[in-house]
Amino acid sequence: MFSRREALRVFGAAAALPLFDPGRLHHPLAQVPSGQAWQPRFLDVNQVETVASIAECIIPRTDTPGARDAGVHEYVDFALERAEATVQQRFTDGLTWFTAHVATLRRRTFTELRRDEQTRLLTELSESTSSQGPAFFVQMKELTIEGYYRSEAGMFQELKFAGNTFLSEFQGCSHEEHLSWQPAEANSTAERDS
């Protein structure tokens, strides 16, 4: 099927990404471009650190990677860079407000707080009745979700995703508990009938 050169390229790509199902070898993957170390394009360095800390509170490292491990801050920077101007502005305003809010409240930056303090602060924020706090939290949570659950760590290590591959047959459901499942009312009818 493949020329030798193509095969080498394919296997090379697979070796670089060992988490992929071997079935994916049916589809030559173009190499993801690699180059210099990551540099933010939208956020500044302090903002990146704040974003990474908030994201890590939202999806922390457990026995699987957390948001920081998964590079969620890189995703947030990427998504904002490509977002519409109104979305960018909303985020920047929210982050500025958040930074000032934390400074007023704790006289330190969010990153300098202990994790339990960070969590308490975010809980208050998400539950507050002010307009700005919850709005910023929701935007940050959504970006974190997108960044984490679309990441290599999120999909493969956390969720054990093994799809988007080549199957020669589709198996479908073969679980007795699903195939024989009946709604509650149908069950009670059946019992009455018997």
Partner: peptide, 27 residues
Amino acid sequence: TPTTGVDVAKHLPGFGEDFKTEVNRRY
């Protein structure tokens, strides 16, 4: 058809370790 998990997570409240566990459970 579980794929990225984004759709699951966006529909769940809260954050932190419990949130992460719940997304995983409902994936």
